[in-house]
Simulated assay, not measured.
Amino acid sequence: MSAAYRPGPDTGVVVSDDGRSVFVARLPGGPLLVLEGPAAVIWAEATTAPAQGWVSRVAASVDQPEDAISAEVTAFVDDLRARDLLVTAADETNPEG
Rank of each mutant, 00 (worst) to 15 (best):
T88C: 04
T11R: 02
V87L: 05
D91V: 05
A39M: 03
G8M: 03
G29Q: 01
V24D: 12
G97A: 15
T11K: 02
G29A: 05
V62H: 01
V14G: 07
L35Y: 00
S2L: 07
I69D: 13
P65T: 01
F76H: 05
V77W: 13
A49Y: 04
F23W: 15
Q64F: 01
T11I: 05
A39K: 06
E66K: 12
A40Q: 13
P7Q: 09
G19N: 08
T47Q: 03
G97Y: 04
L80G: 05
G37N: 13
G53Q: 12
S16E: 10
G19Y: 08
D17M: 09
A71S: 08
A68I: 00
A46F: 02
A4L: 07
Q52K: 14
A44L: 06
G37F: 01
P95A: 08
L85I: 03
E92S: 07
Q64L: 12
V55I: 14
V55Q: 15
V41E: 08
S21G: 05
L35V: 06
Q52A: 15
D10G: 11
D79C: 08
V62Y: 09
D79P: 03
G53L: 12
A59L: 03
P38R: 10
V34H: 03
S56C: 08
P9F: 08
D79V: 09
A89N: 09
G30S: 06
E36H: 06
E92R: 07
